[in-house]
Write a protein that binds this DNA or RNA. Structure first.
Lengths: 366, 366
DNA sequence: TATAATTTTGTGCTCGTACACAAGTTGCAC
DNA sequence: GTGCAACTTGTGTACGAGCACAAAATTATA
């Protein structure tokens, strides 16, 4: 004679078992997708589970569970305040939360401009024989090689930042690059006097020009798509300039040249996170009648947003990518819980006026 | 023959017991200062305890302990899709998470236009003798009376939505109303042709005109502050109209009148969440050359944002207010963890172009 | 139809702590 | 020496879920 839960007590696994006319063991098997349950039992139990919105008692879970998982994260090297730094921030946060589930994390950082670096860390990763992998997929060929091996070993993996669709990842958490370019265009153009010139700034790396990032390309496409959509191409003149990441003085010269030849530039946009470089330049030259738009809340970008040199920054919550990427893995491993395969981040629009208390919860509080 | 902990395993109460040559029960008595232990045993145990720096396993503690906390939430009545609804969504989410800590929640909903309603529920709240309180402080006098009593009983309380600074609350999670009005103005004015008219729409309740909400007042102040800051007062004509929440046809008449007398209206803003009412009207009349800006992501507002009748919506993550408010209380009670006393929500700017994957994590995913 | 193979389900112990209750010890009065 | 109270200590079960293993039910095979 087992009693079902008393009034307003929390539902336990045992209660589910009683209601479904099975034992606790069976319910547990269903919850963890551990197999060996008759289809009809499974269905019945699942119905009750979802109907009662059963949430296992975390304390009991943690106390009872013994096995641990080692996850490995493969990301570009990060420096304080940049985009990857924020992703790692999210990962750290997730780490704290899943530490209770005996999940441990190791982060490998590669040089994002060196394929060799990526490849050798991929090798190292495999040697660590992780239970799951979180990675930013750079260098397509290497990524394919790595994921092939992971699939063979049945090691689940998650992508952040950008996606590789042809591969069977557990999940992808990332940006909507095209759409964010579209948003940037909207902001740029509602602001701009007609028949002026807009400068698109590209930033190349010597020796790796091939890898003009997927993200930035898509953002630019989105930007242009907006112009086309609203048939604005004839009202604005779009020009481009290619800068080189390593060549500061060369860049200045180039920009000087561009500005001399195009005195009617009123808007500047960069599709990567380096708009602060442009702001540096503008500030140096004392140019203040130009609206600059950029991406990502690097500290230096935020600085220029606050002081007005940059008009608008667009951000896509990198912290969440790391956070949700890691928790997705942990949930998959520890609880066999499914994840949404693709999850896009919101596109945040930041002006001087709303940057101040901008925080990405729960990463920037407490 | 009991074995003491294996290598690098965490020390358990039981290990202490073995080392002190007593049973677990006795150690437990010492730890909880529950008395009935021989002085020398006590001393010996305490020494071992501090020497090994014993920390009881939180999980096991929470699992074993029976005592729980009852929290009471005092909020205005909410209807699906409105602002308070989202706050409650966050509270529900937090509720699930803290249920493991034996924290229970009861929500009391008052009529936000009736002081009597607030007062009587405040009374009811006190009768429930909660361990902590989360509330939206309406009706200053009543709030002060309530919080005074709570302070006397040492019951911690948290404010959401708006703050009452003169009172010693555990924390406040809420909006930056003034600043969000400022942001609204920025968006309105960068968009607008000069020397046109901007219509500020107020929505009154019959019988409660006195309580024009604190939030909306501050938003309007922020809006006007922006104009002043950039000396734009002379470039735009600001007019106002007062509508009545209950009088739909009367409102239409009024609006018709306003539009007839002011054919140069190019911008409309409402400082509460009812901009959809204006959008209803504009759509009905087929007026499409006006930029409307409003607050909060009510379903109906989002609808009009997507179809272009509303240009921009400003949101302040009400879910987070509820979520963090409740977890702050729970953490304070169950773990004695401190909270930041004041925590402002980010001001989110939503256009048609970035509304689509806008989600407030972790409320809208999984 | 009996028996083996397989699928499905139930049982019981575990995790580390709390706490009620039982049991043991001591001292003192008679 | 017995009885009894006060003090001290030990024991057992509960908490809720995980998981290995036992047991039962079903299906396949001879």
């Amino acid at each position: 004679m087992s009693e079902i839960k008393k009034k307003d007590e929390r539902i336990r696994l045992k209660d589910i078992a009683v209601l479904a006319n099975v034992s606790a063991g069976t319910v547990d098997r269903v919850i963890h997708n551990r197999g060996g349950v008759a289809p009809e039992s499974k269905k019945r139990i699942e119905e009750i589970l979802s109907e009662l919105n059963f949430k296992p008692n975390k304390m009991a879970q943690l106390l009872a569970t013994k096995k641990g998982y080692k996850l490995v994260v493969l990301l570009p090297e990060a420096v304080r305040g940049d985009y990857w730094w924020d992703i790692i921030k999210g990962i750290k946060r997730a780490e704290e939360e899943v530490a209770d589930y005996h999940v441990k994390t190791e982060i490998l950082r590669f040089n994002q401009y060196s394929m060799e670096s990526f490849a050798s860390l991929a090798q190292r990763l495999l040697e660590l024989n992780p239970a799951g992998v979180l990675m930013a997929p750079f260098f397509r060929r290497e990524v394919l090689r790595l994921t092939k091996e992971l699939e063979e070993r049945s090691i689940p993996f998650v992508f952040v930042d950008s996606n590789v669709e042809s591969v069977n990842s557990l999940a992808y958490y990332g940006q909507q690059s095209h759409q964010s370019g579209y948003v940037a265009a909207k902001i740029m153009l509602t602001k701009l006097e007609q028949f002026s010139t807009i400068l698109l700034v590209h930033m190349l790396r010597t020796g790796s020009s091939a890898i003009s990032s997927n993200q930035t390309t898509k953002r630019e496409e989105g930007f242009l798509a907006y112009l086309e959509k609203y048939s604005l191409e004839s009202f604005y003149r779009i020009i481009r300039v290619d800068l080189h990441a390593e060549d500061e003085s060369g860049n200045e010269e180039k920009l000087d040249g561009v500005f001399n030849q195009n005195p009617d530039i009123r808007g500047i946009i960069m599709f990567n996170s380096r708009i602060y470089r442009i702001a540096d330049f503008l500030e140096k030259r004392g140019i203040r009648n130009i609206r600059a738009i950029g991406y990502d809340l690097l500290e230096r970008n935020v600085h220029y947003l606050k002081n007005g040199m940059v008009e608008c920054l667009i951000a896509q919550r990198p912290q969440l990518q790391g956070y949700y990427g890691l928790t997705a893995l942990a949930r998959h491993l520890a609880f066999k819980q499914p994840s949404k395969p693709i999850c896009y981040m919101p596109i945040d629009i930041l002006f001087k006026e709303n940057i101040n208390d901008y925080k990405v919860y729960p990463f920037d509080v407490e």
